[in-house]
Structure formats: C-alpha cells, structure tokens
Design a binder for these strands. Structure first.
Lengths: 167, 167
DNA sequence: TATTGTTATACTCTATAACTATA
DNA sequence: TATAGTTATAGAGTATAACAATA
C-alpha cells in the first residue's frame, strides 16, 4: 500500500508517458499508424487469432479493432479467413507482406529506443517492462472478466529467451 | 544497453499502457476530460506559469495547450492574467474553484489506483514512478532544445509541502 | 523579423449504438 | 435470444498552418 501523494505522482507519470508514445508514433512508416502497428505486432507475437481475441489483447472495443484490421487488410498485410468452426468469425493471419512491414516497424522502434535509452542498463529496461506489464495486469484483471480465456489472461511473467509473451 | 527483443517488448508495453490511461479517464468528473485534468494538475504542482511553459510541461504543441486552457478557463477553474513583463503573454493561475476541482480529481485517481494496486508495495509503486520519470527524461531531453529558456526549465522544482514535483 | 498565443482544419483513436449474419 | 463482426456517428487529443498582437 502506497501513500496518496505517490498515487498522484503515478497518475501524473501515466498521463505524461503519452509524450513518449507520440514520439514513437512519429517514426512509424507512412500508411502505418499506431493502431495498425499494434495489430501487426500482436499477430506476429501471438499468431493467428479471431477479431474478438485481438480486441481483448488490444484492450479496445471490437468496433475499434475492426477499423484497425480493415486498414491493415486493405494494405495486404493481413488476411481474414472464414472460421470453419463458426461462420460469424474471421481468423486473422499475417501475410508475408505483413511480416515484412512488421519487421520494418520493429527495426524502427528498436532503433529509436536504443538511441534514447542508450544509458539504460539491460536490467533497468527489464525492470520497467516488468512493472508496466504488472500495472496492466492490475488494471486488466478486473475488466476482462474472462478466465475462460485463461490462456490469454495467464501469467506469462517469465521471459522466454527472445520475447516475453505478455501481450 | 539492452537487446532488441527487450526494446520491442518495451514498445509493446508503452502502446498497451494506453488501456490504463483510458481506464483512469473514465472516472474523471464530467466536464473535465484528461486534457483539462492535466492542466489543473500541472498548475497545482508548479504554480502560476505562462502558456509556453505549460505547453512544455504537457509536451504538446501550444495550439493544443491553448485549447485545453480555454476549456478550463471557461469553467472558471483558472484565470488568464496579462503578463506585465510581456504583453503577448498570459499568466495562468488556478482559481479557488479550480483548486476544488483539482482536489476532486486527485481524490478520484488516487482512489482508483489504491484499489487497483492494492497488492503493490510502496516501494514497487515508487520504482515504477522513478523508471517512468526517467523514461520521459530520456525522451524529452532531446526535443526540448531550449537552454535559452533556461529560466523556464530552471527553478520551480521545489515542492510545496504536499506534492512530489517531478512534472 | 521573431515570438506569444489563438483559431481553423485535418487526422487518429476511441466508444456507443444500430445493423447483419450467424449460433 | 445471444454472439461475432461491421459501419455510422460523435467526442477527445494532437499537429500544422495561418493569423494577430507584441517584442
């Protein structure tokens, strides 16, 4: 349990981190705004999935997801396949072009972060990742309500060798 | 120096923290969207200041600042006084009503964070605050460019008795 | 001529609600 | 009747550019 002043300060930092996000957004390729980048990133990380699953990972309404997905699909970065098990659903899949775009995205963001955080240690970056991941979990675990999607909400807190899979 | 996979994960978490911000935004009082809340918070924390200074603290363009300020001024939460030293400038000052509104804001956000982070220790919250503050510094220190505005970047950083002041 | 601040315009992101097509 | 997804609409946030007043 923390003090009130600490919570106020955390709220301020959360509000202020938007500036960092905007900086990151400025280096994205044309035609690939942040929403599209998030779709590609999550598909690359978690593999094929349905709209509803993607919406959950994005933590936004499915109507929003639908728009982002339409945008990346229009550019040939993903395909929407019918789900044989449920004709209402569509399975999203990254195309080779989408994978190429995703690699370009990763390159640009990693380069920017490497430059800006050049004086951070590996451990410090790791700490920040862990705390932010936990922050999201502390908020998300009350709205999601699922539990049936155990796989999605699951722990995940240990790192794999390459990419921590925490959404 | 961290690895590429770590940077990619950090980018993902930065993108995802938007969900937390939106959750916080949902509990704000009517008529006080996040932009207005940020204005009130910074004025309460740093005291009277000019538009340009506020824009710098918000890390947004002054045109955006102008709109947020107009919104809170229209509700009587701040006053815009002429600057005797420069007739182009306007000094922003929190009104008593603005202070009341600010206290309501602080109460709501603190309450929400206290609830969501009930299982966090004081030290963990402090760590997250420190890392996020540093993250912002690592990004901000390259865009500001001022230095001529030494005065602006300068003092002010002392605390009132109540609130941590790291912007 | 440069700077402070405002306003007009445009774009992105988001949520709500209405709608379709399945279940 | 309920669910998966789409689309229309509206609101908030931001950036760019044009403009007014002052330095």
């Amino acid at each position: 349990m923390a003090e009130q002043a600490q919570y106020e300060e955390l709220a301020r930092q959360l509000s202020a981190v938007g500036a960092v996000k905007r900086d990151m957004g400025r280096i994205l390729p044309p035609d690939c705004p942040a929403g599209s980048a998030a779709v590609l990133t999550l598909l690359g990380r978690h593999g094929d999935m349905r709209m509803s699953k993607l919406a959950e990972l994005l933590s936004v309404d499915m109507s929003v997801t639908s728009r982002h997905v339409a945008h990346v699909a229009a550019r040939g970065w993903i395909e929407r396949h019918p789900d044989p098990a449920d004709k209402r659903s569509r399975i999203l899949r990254l195309t080779p072009a989408g994978l190429t775009e995703l690699e370009e995205l990763s390159l640009r963001t990693s380069r920017l972060l490497a430059e800006r955080l050049s004086d951070w240690t590996d451990d410090e970056v790791g700490q920040l990742i862990r705390l932010m991941t936990r922050l999201r979990a502390s908020f998300g675990d009350c709205r999601s309500v699922p539990a049936r999607h155990a796989a999605a909400a699951a722990p995940v807190f240990e790192e794999t060798t390459r990419t921590p899979a925490s959404t």
